[in-house]
Design a protein around this nucleic acid. Sequence first.
RNA 1: GGCGCUAUCGUCUAGGGGUUAGGACGGAAGAUUCUCAAUCUUCAAACCCGGGUUCGAUUCCCGGUAGCGCUACCA
Length: 500
Amino acid sequence: MSPSFSPPSTPPAGPRVRFAPSPTGYLHVGGARTALFNWLFARHHGGTLILRIEDTDLERSTAEMVEGILQGMRWLGLDWDEGPYHQTQRMEMYRESAAKLLTSGHAYYCFCTKQELEQRRSAAAAEGRPPRYEGTCRKISREDGARRRAAGEVAAVRFAALEAGSTAFDDAVFGRVEFANSELEDFVLLRSDGVPTYHLSVVTDDVDMRISHIIRGADHISNTPKQVLLYQALGAPLPVFAHLPLILGPDKTRLSKRHGATRVIAYRDEGIVPEAFRNFLALLGWTPPESGPDNACTEILGDQQLIRLFDLNGISHSNAVFDRAKLDWFNTEYIRAYPAEKLLPLIQEEWRKAGLEPAHTDRDWLFATINLLKPRARSLKDFATSFRAFFTDTFQPDPAAVEKFLADERVRRMLVELGERYAGSHETFTESGTERLLRDFAAEKEMKAGALINGARVVLTGQGVAPSLFAVMMALGKERTLARLKATQELAARAMTPEV
RNA sequence: GGCGCUAUCGUCUAGGGGUUAGGACGGAAGAUUCUCAAUCUUCAAACCCGGGUUCGAUUCCCGGUAGCGCUACCA
């Protein structure tokens, strides 16, 4: 964390990009997507990703949020090559930058107070004029300004924007974007307390860190001409700008807490696996190049494929709605594809959070059971909720399932009797053996096998939905299967007791 | 208000001067009968509006509309 950036001894070739979050909140969905695209771009081109914490808003930035952002990036598997640098530790550089601009005449001291500005702004609004800084202090001569400043008068430093002409840049996503200079006001560079504003610190850092491509949200498009002007005033070469369309909520307004979880780490807590989230995010506003007309099933893309395929020209121009249903679909696909070994630690974390003590800790058994269950999982949470009865004997039956499959008293009696049959059978307890016995038993009692199977499923798992019954029995083992069948009536009573 | 960006199924999107406008998620229906949150099959579903250019526009141009963004001594 040196106050000044020092280049590595052998600078690697390739582009230099940065992710520059402001620690005024946790890593949110939009920020994560920006980080992901920068990461993908850097990895694809063999470039360098720099992490820079933009904490010049002293009031709102906290160390806790810095940690939250790093945690979010780690969860998503996004690593960086340099940093994190903190802007608060590079203050001297911004002041030098401002001083340079002051001497070159690109900036001037502004002695207006916050209250004066506020007053003039509201007056302008009342008269229907644009609430723009009208350059009051620009009229002060450089000598007078310097003298007053030296005498201890408090002043901010403002950029002396051009009054005529226009400023344009070629955006890698949106193409050429042009703004009339008359639209740009004399924005503040250095606050009166000596802390730089966003525009100054960003450009100073991007120049110093030799950032070649600025990949950031489209909400910065309108800021870009100001920054282009700053690059020019500083005599620095322009980077490539690539603005990313924004992510919206289902009502097409900007994604916010209103729409549910906006911090990425909340998705971990909801049982989403990081690769699924990353895959989902990558496809929000970007399409891989080879998705032609007859190219189905190319949407499941692992990190290596994403890196190989990613490029700036697949980025779309329009904002994208965050589609939770599609995220959940990616999650089921990834959970299904994960080997049990990889799933187990994630599932154990869910158990820990749910206070579930697994009855078996034998790894082979755990892997087999996870493999049985994972094709039906929609979230890691399922392993501690709807699949709970596989791993512990303390579970609550789903009342709706009991109502649907165990309402019949005869079915319940027969299940108990079935359990006794299993207990008395000398046949080995196998998938086909248990099925044969059940079907014979049903025939003998002149019952539909399905009624017993469905009832038994609820008795064994507490759920109306689960894998094939006889596979469930194998997962549970003979002992637990028999115990639960024996306790059929108790289970039904437990579920049907009206909650008070 | 001013300035900027954008506009293809509900959503993410492909495409592109002549196409049955393609895919994915979601939805619906059917199959399976041992449940469905699994699996398989099928179906519905879109080029914002108005002008222009053109033999022909969803595609190119202009205007409108709508959405979003910026308009701070926030970032």
